[in-house]
Structures are given as C-alpha cells and as structure tokens.
Amino acid sequence: MTEETALPDQTVDNEPRRTFLLRFPSALMAFGLVAGYGMFASFIGRFLFPSRNRQRRPQYVADLNSFKLGQSMTYHSPAGESVVLSRTGETGTVDDFIALSSVCPHLGCQVHWEGQNNRFFCPCHNGAFDPEGNPTAGPPKDANQTLPRYQLVVQNGLLYIDASTKSLVRTDSQPQALV
C-alpha cells in the first residue's frame, strides 16, 4: 500500500516534477504541524509569562506646595516599602524630586539608612550609598551602581509615586471562610 511499490512504474523523464510531487506533501505536513503546534506553544509561553503587572500604580504622595525645597520625607508604599523622597529643585516638575529605592543594585538586598554614618548601607556585601544614592563603598562602588530610583509623576501640582501596591485589598467580596 506504500508508494514505494508504485515508484518503479513512473517514467524517468519527469523526474523533477515527480520529486516535487513527492516532497510537497511532506513539506506541507511539516509546515502544518509546526505552524499549528508552534502557535499553540506560543500561547503556552504567553500563558506562563505573567500578565501585565497590575500591582504598580501611581500613588499620591504629597502636594508640591507643602513639600518644600530641601525637605525630605519617607513614603510607605501599600506593599510596605519605605521610600525616601527629597526635593532638590523648585521647577515644579518631576525633576525636582528624588525617590530612592531601598533595593541594592548589587544583588537585590534591602539597604537601610545609617544615620550616624550618613549613608545607606547594604548588609549583604557591605555596600554603601550616600544620601543621593551614589555608591561610596563595597561592590556597588566597584561597579558604579547607584541606588535605583522610583518613577515619579507630577500632575496638577500633586506628586505621585509609581510604587508597588502588592498587599492588595480587593474591592470585590472576600471569599467566605469555611467553618
């Protein structure tokens, strides 16, 4: 029932056409399988790749009028991060402000503020940063990594921070606990 039995019957002069006829279905099959299952696999990839991050949204921090030049404040995000913000300019735009993240650029540990040394210090590998977030010691200094900054937004004279809102309170009803 396979074509091999039929092959010797074919004449030799239409060799190229015959080859094509033999190969076309195989190519089509290969294409069909790769295209179909490939697309399916790409869906799987997208499924596993987390959906867009809903856990960050600009959050109100302060109004520009009450946040004066030279002042600094600590903002606690709903997720619990503390962000040190300071105002360094008076243009009334987002460039006036610095919001330092407390995530060390080296390997992601949490830095903390050391008042007596006037620096941010990372306990993991003794990295240190000045109040502006520039590296002063440890691996971050060697690699010249500054403390990352939070995105800020100024809108209608109000300052917003693009901080994590991970600890969510759902607006829809909480699932009922079973007794």
């Binding site: 279905p25 089509l28 295209a35 299952y37 697309m39």
Partner: peptide, 13 residues
C-alpha cells in the same frame, strides 16, 4: 495523509 495533515495543521493555526 501528509497533505491532509498539512492542511489540518493550517486549519488548527
């Protein structure tokens, strides 16, 4: 059969 598979693959797509 190969052709059918190819066409079905495209239909799946």
């Amino acid at each position: 059969k190969r052709t059918v598979i190819g066409l079905l693959g495209i239909l799946f797509l």
